[in-house]
Design a protein around this nucleic acid. Structure first.
Lengths: 240, 240
DNA sequence: AAGTGGTCTAGACCACCGA
DNA sequence: CGGTGGTCTAGACCACTTC
């Protein structure tokens, strides 16, 4: 029954199976895998072949390896850790982590627009979070986040312990790790709400970023729209 | 004379030397390196060690490997090839390559602002190119590019044979390969020139992207400012 | 068929971590 | 100190390209 028509290297097969076990939760985020020799024996391959599989999973951010300690399933630290080449920067280049201020959390039924972005059915329940993000004592981002309860399972936020970084929350409370995202960036005029929250005049352009976030299973976890006042900050991308 | 205090793996040393030779032009873009065994013998290491060096340089876009053929120095195909996760996209997701229309090429002395961005002295000569880029029969980008003659050497563009993609031109005519870039993105009101070139009303916000491009030697080759009409297109970034 | 890069092995030794 | 990942080797064989 050899399938010689399309050859798949051993390390690819091993990699795929280890990824399957990570996604299935056989090893939870932060926990350590068996060592290289033990895993190699499990799969019946040499240490070198297993090593190649682990190194590729490490490059893809699924694993973290520590010399002398072992190999662990990667843990998300904050929203920006995933996207190290992309962040808000002050014109003077100082980088300040944002602070959130919640303006409202509600459980609503998805409009057709939101349902389309989250790829769920119209009327399905979602969490809607409205917040502003403050950098250097200035309201810079007016944001609205829609979370797909279909993916996260039931969520009940307590106001006093609301997480500053949602991605960390998903991981710890829902076992969901955001793995990739797509952003659409454009320049628009602010809405009345943007004008109020960001403290700008209504003719001041703002940057609108629509971000769709996917977990390791390629499910859409959240959709967020951020309006950014770029008078004192720029969105900086390092490309290579 | 062993320097045991800071251990440097063999493959790192080999990699660094091969990179030095690529940058020095020992092998020009598109030409093939000696095969793995020949190079391994040159450096006095095993094929596996040399292989690791070549694979890392391939991951960093310096080399391209073809099974059965050999290993070649990477060639830039177009401006966007470097940045596969970042491009203008129509709202209907169709992706159309842009066409350029030149509005002026001049050799000028750098203002203090331009000199600062190119990290040259005020008054140094630069090429200034004004152009608009057309997607799907619509003027979408109004752009001005400053090229550092100090880095590229002398350049004389012939209007009828102006290159559509500047990055390819740098490589073929100046032997300079753009390796990374930094973009600062913000939302602004259009200038009078933007209004005219993009055919928009003066209250329509535009995206302003300021991009600084570096070659493999970390020299700043060009600085460009692009104003984008995002009414029908969005700037899309895929993050992972 | 010859030559290239791609995979895989078995084994040795090194650098790092923590008890 | 033992255990982990990191490096390095020598050699075998496979898959792809070109002639």
């Amino acid at each position: 029954m050899d399938k010689k028509i399309s050859y798949v290297p051993l390390y690819e097969q091993v990699k795929k199976d280890i990824l399957r076990r990570i996604i299935a939760g056989d090893w939870s985020p932060g926990s350590f895998l068996p060592n290289e020799f033990a895993l190699a024996e499990q799969y019946g391959v040499s240490q070198g072949t297993l090593r190649k599989a682990l190194n590729e999973l490490t490059a893809e951010k699924y694993l973290v390896r520590y010399q002398g300690k072992g190999t662990a399933v990667a843990v998300v630290e904050d929203d920006t850790a995933l996207f190290p080449f992309f962040f808000l920067s002050r014109r003077d280049n100082k980088h300040i982590p944002p602070v959130s201020q919640i303006n409202g959390i509600a459980r609503i039924k998805a409009s057709s627009d939101i349902a389309g972005h989250l790829q769920i059915n119209e009327g399905d329940e979602v969490i809607e979070i409205k917040r502003v993000r403050i950098l250097d004592n200035e309201c810079v981002i007016n944001e609205i986040v829609y979370i797909s309860l279909k993916v996260t399972g039931d969520i009940h936020f307590e106001d006093q312990q609301f997480p500053n970084t949602l991605y960390v929350y998903y991981q710890h409370k829902c076992g969901i790790r955001i793995h990739r995202a797509v952003e659409d960036i454009e320049a628009v005029l602010p809405t009345a709400d943007d004008v109020k929250k960001l403290g700008i005049v209504k003719t001041q352009p703002v940057m609108k970023i629509s971000r769709t976030s996917f977990d390791v299973q390629e499910r859409i976890v959240e959709y967020r729209i951020s309006k950014i006042n770029t008078q004192n900050f720029v969105y900086r991308a390092s490309l290579q």
